[in-house]
Nucleic acid binder design. Structure first.
Lengths: 235, 235
DNA sequence: CAGTGGTCTAGACCACAGG
DNA sequence: CTGTGGTCTAGACCACTGG
């Protein structure tokens, strides 16, 4: 083999991938330790570390102290979903975004499945909003949202006909952790009417709960019209 | 404020998050540059870099050369889905995994939606498999799979009644990139019978195409019984 | 207890993009 | 052109864990 130059961690990463694809290193094999690779590639160990860590983050390698680094046998496909704000998703498709507030009231509990997803105690003081996202005037998603008024008091005074609750929250409660659930459901008559679907049609649904420091911030259920598909980028 | 010790990149990361949550740094704000933070935290710049990079990877910060680092305004929620092998998913729930090969033949094209998802030229020499994954004997998912025989010739000789095609592929074609699509569909009579669902019921569906070096390796469509939910970890 | 990856440091140079 | 993040280096110590 010709002498190759490895200048940076990306090229090392590529070379490691190449060896795995070429089955020079097979699933389950322990690969040479960092020092050895650093020596082979004629670079600092930190650089090799950077490359191997990135592969380990993606589940392609498994690393353990003392045990060394091995090629994952049954790699978990780690798909990253970029869940953006619906407005951005719609505008990215070159469509005009619209938002329509259908209902607003106070509730004292979440629906059971969202409560289970939340995994944290849910207060009894919730602002409940039902709204519709539109793309070029056509229903794009029906959204049902609960906002914890103890975490986000100012939400009560907001007029969510102007700004969508999601965008307001994102800018008001900056950093949050969230859990998602994806599922299929049948359109009930109410939902069907909002989304211009027929009752009983299969709809794609995303549930989400958002927390900050262990306290619920908001819970959302978004329902999409028939035919909607959620796509991911690469693992 | 009391003098705090910042020993490692994780603690710096936490402190940065704290400042964002506390709105000391608001969405859109430029935060101090790495050298300044390294100075404040009394550590090397590389350590600050490590902390900020991890936040930037998650979409919480946005970094650009010369422009500096700022708190993301409309952060994209980056959910990571761990799509494991169904056998592992089932066994992780303490259930017994079973696999049943329903049909096997040759086809010359993918269904249109999978072909669109693939994004690479699809050869006309495909092995097609239809199989059922069982958890404790109950249908867990119906799987329809196409394998590119030009990439994975040996697949033709395999007996997929013994080992599931997915597991064989994973060990045979180690590293691959893949794209997913999630959607809802109505059970047609055939699918309904396999999954013991009623015709027309909403089903959750995952489509996936897998590539290696730009060549299609396999395309899969997995359909789950009513009530199935896909959950994610945190962003 | 010893070997491996995990991390930190201090310094350097580079690449990119803002002004 | 200049300031910022991106990366590399050489060396060091630490933490975990397998044997």
């Amino acid at each position: 083999m010709s002498v190759q130059e490895f200048r940076n961690w990306r090229s090392i990463r590529e070379e490691v991938l190449r060896r795995i694809e070429a089955r020079e290193w097979e699933p389950g094999d322990v690969i040479p330790r960092e020092v050895a690779l650093a020596d082979e590639f004629n670079c600092a160990r930190a650089t090799v570390n950077r490359a191997l860590r990135s592969l380990s983050d993606e589940g392609i390698l498994e690393r353990r102290r003392k045990a060394g680094t091995r090629v994952a046998e049954l790699p978990t496909r780690r798909a990253t979903l970029d869940i953006s704000i619906l407005r951005l998703e719609i505008e990215a498709q070159g469509q005009h975004y619209g938002h329509q507030l259908l209902a607003q009231d106070h509730e004292t509990a979440l629906p059971p499945d969202l409560e289970a997803l939340a995994g944290v105690p849910v207060p009894h003081n919730l602002l409940h909003l039902r709204s519709l996202h539109l793309a070029d005037g056509v229903p794009y998603a029906l959204e049902e949202r609960w906002i914890n008024l103890e975490t986000a008091r100012e939400a009560e005074a907001m007029d969510f006909r102007e700004i969508s609750p999601n965008e307001w929250l994102v800018n008001h409660v900056p950093y949050t952790a969230c859990d998602f659930t994806f599922s299929a459901m049948a359109a009930d008559p109410v939902v069907a009417r909002s989304l211009k679907a027929r009752s009983g049609q299969p709809l794609f649904r995303i549930d989400r709960t958002t927390r900050q420091r262990g306290a619920l911030v908001t819970a959302v259920c978004q329902i999409f019209p028939p035919g909607y598909r959620l796509r991911t980028g690469v693992a």
